[in-house]
Amino acid sequence: MKLVRELESKYTKQNLPTFNVGDNVDVEVRIKEGDKERIQLFSGVVIQLRGSGIRTMFTVRRIVQGEGVERVFPLHSPKIANVIVRREGRVRRSKLYYLRGRTGRAARIDEKARVSKGE
């Protein structure tokens, strides 16, 4: 299995964006339109990080027109150009599924105290 890890490293990204569950992020997704390529943003809260190595996936949740939208991204996919952390959240669990049942003020996440990179 060591060989598997080594071979995977060829396909994994070296400079991974660092972010955590609870963070407000902008995910830069590469989108092809005809022969042009542009970057689309998907911003929301990271509600789960799962898997390891090349299989790492993360889910971003946002509210669009009053409707909750979740998108799952493979972290190592070449389609994910970058993940920018807008606001670091202070959370106490690794999966924020409880956000799904909440809206508005109830779905707030406190900002991490030591960080002052406001929006």
């Binding site: 598997v4 995977e8 090349i54």
Partner: peptide
Amino acid sequence: VGMTQIHRGEEG
């Protein structure tokens, strides 16, 4: 050795 998955091509 075992199985894994990779992202292939630009489309990943």
